[in-house]
């Protein structure tokens, strides 16, 4: 609960902060809080990812982006209430959706009845890997992980092409002048 309160406080601070450098630092704090929360939920793998990607790599990349652009956010020109309304409605719908979820951590809810018991029981016999998270990710659900890797590949190539493609055109322009 304390963590959630801190998360909310950091979120409000991010929204109110106009200096984008401050926003990047606060986003890093948010990621570390989130990682702590995920450890509290016993999801160590996700916490590790959140700490390294969310707080580490994205902070570096955001700072690099700030180096390329301006570091202060412009104050809004006009106050538009429609986005707030949309956000409130969508948020209310999400909260309404969680009301019909089974209580947190209940063993006999639907998701724990389908294939999870088989994975838990058979993982060590079938794959010889004691960590069920790894055997599910890399063996039983390998298609999904292949898809994820392809997503990282595609996203990386896309960003590289965007950054490099612009650069090459600049270089050609620069070469013509000199």
């Amino acid at each position: 609960m304390a963590l959630l309160t801190l998360l909310a406080a950091v979120t409000v601070a991010i929204v109110r902060q106009r200096s984008l450098f401050g926003v990047v630092v606060l986003a890093g704090i948010y990621s570390f809080l989130m990682a702590t929360l995920l450890i509290a939920l016993d999801a160590v793998d996700v916490a590790m990812t959140e700490a390294s990607v969310g707080a580490g790599i994205s902070t570096v990349l955001l700072l690099a982006t700030l180096h390329l652009t301006k570091t202060t956010e412009m104050s809004p020109i006009n106050r538009n209430w429609l986005p707030l309304l949309v956000v409130l409605i969508v948020g209310a719908a999400v909260v309404w959706g969680t009301l019909s979820l089974p209580p947190f951590g209940v063993a006999d809810s639907v998701v724990h009845q389908h294939v999870a018991p088989r994975y838990l029981a058979q993982s060590i016999v079938e794959t010889g890997v004691p960590n069920v998270v790894t055997s599910v990710l890399a063996d039983y659900r390998s298609y999904d992980t292949l898809g994820e890797t392809t997503v990282i590949f595609t996203a990386g190539i896309g960003v590289l092409l965007l950054l490099r493609g612009l650069r090459r055109r600049d270089d050609i322009g620069g070469g013509g002048e000199s």
């Binding site: 160590v44 793998d45 590790m48 990812t49 390294s52 990607v53 580490g56 790599i57 890997v129 004691p130 960590n131 998270v133 790894t134 990710l137 890399a138 994820e148």
Partner: peptide, 12 residues
């Protein structure tokens, strides 16, 4: 294989 982690985390 034994503890938390895997290719993604190690890569990052």
């Amino acid at each position: 294989d034994y503890g938390p982690g895997g290719g993604f985390q190690a890569g990052v």
